[in-house]
Computed example of a mutant assay.
Amino acid sequence: MALQASSRSLQQRRAFSSAQTSKRVSVTKVRATAIEAENYVKQAPQTLVRPGIDTEDSMRARFEKVIRNAQDSICNAISEIDGKPFHQDAWTRPGGGGGISRVLQDGNVWEKAGVNVSVVYGTMPPEAYRAATGNAERLKNTGDGGRVPFFAAGISSVMHPRNPHCPTMHFNYRYFETEEWNGIPGQWWFGGGTDITPSYVVPEDMKHFHGTYKAVCDRHDPAYYEKFRTWCDEYFLIKHRGERRGLGGIFFDDLNDRNPEDILKFSTDAVNNVVEAYCPIVKKHMNDPFTAQEKEWQQIRRGRYVEFNLVYDRGTTFGLKTGGRIESILMSMPQTASWLYDHQPKAGSPEAELLDACRNPRVWV
């Protein structure tokens, strides 16, 4: 009996070992496939749109030019403040397009700052299409048959400073097209916005940030700022917490209600004002003294940032569902964050004021 039991045990161990080996081989194949999906190149191509098809005067090519110029100017401004350059990875995608990822890590001012550009096209599963747009009407009665032909170009950035008195900042501007699918005509729309996530409330800083974007909005449509400010507060709500990720900014999506030329001009103006809205605040506070308690509070707020990005952010969902580059998709994550059990800031404290502002959005300008 003991010998039979020992024999069965040996067989079980062998079977388990074989299964584990098979699993490792399978995982290795998956990883290899993922790596093969990205062709890293030493130098970014002059253009990532379709050569010979998307001409220079097409919206696709013009939007790519806007976001690549913005990537250059914003990275230059951040590097000048930090004193450290960005690391760049350029890649192409066999299915169509590619991207340029730039990350500054372990800097003097920023623990982590990334500015990514991507231009991708091909086909995507219907669930990715649904993740890409918040317009449910567009997707009624479409079913799940086939794959949706699409084009997507965008610039995305998140910057996490070291000093808890310097705010985290995020921006994203994108242009999207689909071709006819399941009876739905081809679509196009713009989306994006810039928002700010401080650990402490400094009204003058918020007036500067929001004031910059109100001026941008007013140059294009006086109704934009109120509409997009409110949209931002609604979008960045962490529903399971009942609080916003930060103190807002502007946000818009599915914008195609007017001439695309006008929306392109607005998007260009908005992305070109990221430096003006954000950098003066960082310069003002990057050398402020801070305590261990203030650093801990920053870590807790970063935890909220992670929760929103992984649970609710449509850009993250779209990237994962279309097999996007994982390092680029998760570039928005901070290097470190904290989740303390049932942490409650002391009533009347600066930390409690920030929490109140996240729960009850304020009008800054």
Rank of each mutant, 00 (worst) to 15 (best):
S9A: 13
L10R: 12
R13K: 15
A15C: 02
K23L: 11
R24C: 00
V27K: 11
V30R: 13
K42T: 10
R62Y: 06
F63C: 00
E64N: 12
Q71A: 01
T92Q: 15
G95F: 04
G97I: 12
G97V: 09
I100L: 14
P126E: 02
D144Y: 02
A152K: 00
S157G: 03
V158L: 07
W181C: 04
Q187I: 09
Q187C: 10
Q187H: 10
W188A: 06
G191T: 07
Y200T: 05
V201T: 15
P203D: 01
Y213N: 10
A223L: 12
T230L: 13
E234V: 04
Y235R: 04
F236K: 08
L247W: 07
D253V: 09
P260W: 10
F266N: 04
S267K: 05
E276F: 07
A277Y: 05
Y278H: 01
C279M: 15
P280V: 04
T291F: 12
Q293C: 03
W297M: 10
I300D: 09
G303L: 03
R304F: 05
K321T: 12
R325P: 00
P334L: 01
P334M: 00
D342K: 12
Q344F: 02
P345M: 11
K346D: 08
E351A: 12
R359M: 11
P361D: 15
R362M: 08
W364P: 09
